[in-house]
Write a protein that binds this DNA or RNA. Structure first.
Ligand SMILES: [Zn+2]
Ligand SMILES: [Zn+2]
Ligand SMILES: [Zn+2]
Ligand SMILES: [Zn+2]
Lengths: 161, 161
DNA sequence: ACAAAGATGATACTCAGTATCAATAGCCGA
DNA sequence: TCGGCTATTGATACTGAGTATCATCTTTGT
């Protein structure tokens, strides 16, 4: 029931320091942007992150953006979220937390859900398949309460909202 | 319990005819290759399909391969399977059948499993989120019985096997 | 302040997938 | 069977996301 507070910039910066990596200006700028989005519950792509970061830090290179996203993903702060149309975007999460995402196929809102496959189901699979399970990926799709009020067809682009 | 027989080429060709589309030579060749892989339980990418088809039909264009895969996917004969490393490949399935995939992260073997999220879990999510659920995507990862015997690290490429 | 190692950013490149379009091949009616 | 209509094809050029390279710039420890 403990509502985990949104990941903030300092947590990510601290993790970088703990990993023995350097606290550089580009990393800080990119992390600040990601943290802002995290609080707003907004997901993003590398390209979007790059463009947004350039508003306040035009000197940041595209490569660095990709590198930083990969780094944060490795540190466990970024999850790839899959949408109904198959597109994938990044989402800031608490490292180590196991949860899944429910995305609105109309407005692309992302909600973290803490349900998972029941252990017994995993047991069954493991027994009947002979596989040793090591992980899974679960994404739920639907229409959020707001979007249920409209009759508009499902959108393709992410520019909505 | 009825073990669904593997999808064969004729089923796919019939579906194309029923959709009012034309039974062309490239489509036939590509479908034959996919059907062969279906029986063998092999998954593939568009690029792989193209190369393989060229052995027996060097005149097939790359574009046509992409178009045919898209067509078959629309007709429900192809599922995108996700692997532990994030790569995605196609897998022939019975159209309309709801199931999920379990992939071996060492040899990339794909197994269809018929378990799913329990209805009550979906109910819970629906109630607590306010979303109207429209679908989901579930992929399980593990090591198949064969690969459990080895201690080799997880592979990256698909060329194994 | 200095050298070593880490990190950066410009550039060029790869790779999967898409767009275009003239040429081809099924289909159907005469 | 013929001829025209249209779906389909395949060559080509293009896009966009991500990667590789490498000289230059920073951070850090001494
Ligand atoms: Zn919505
Ligand atoms: Zn889970
Ligand atoms: Zn295996
Ligand atoms: Zn399911």
């Amino acid at each position: 029931m403990t509502q985990a507070r949104t990941v903030n910039a300092d947590q990510m910066k601290a993790a970088i320091a703990e990993a023995g990596l350097r606290p550089t200006r580009p990393r800080a700028a990119l992390i600040d942007q990601m943290a802002a989005w995290a609080t707003a519950g907004t997901d993003f792509t590398c390209e979007e992150l790059w463009h947004s970061a350039q508003a306040s830090a035009p000197w940041i290179g595209r490569s660095t953006t990709f590198r930083t996203v990969e780094l944060l993903a490795d540190l466990g702060f970024l999850d790839r979220v899959t949408f109904a149309d198959g597109s994938e975007r990044y989402h800031v999460v608490q490292p180590g937390s196991h949860h899944h995402h429910l995305t609105c196929e109309m407005c692309h809102r992302v909600v973290e859900i803490d349900i998972c496959l029941p252990a017994e189901v995993l047991e069954t699979v493991q027994r009947s398949s002979g596989f040793a399970l090591t992980g899974h990926r679960l994404e739920l799709f639907g229409r959020c309460s707001d979007c249920q009020r409209h009759t508009v067809p499902v959108i393709d682009s992410v520019d909505a909202e």
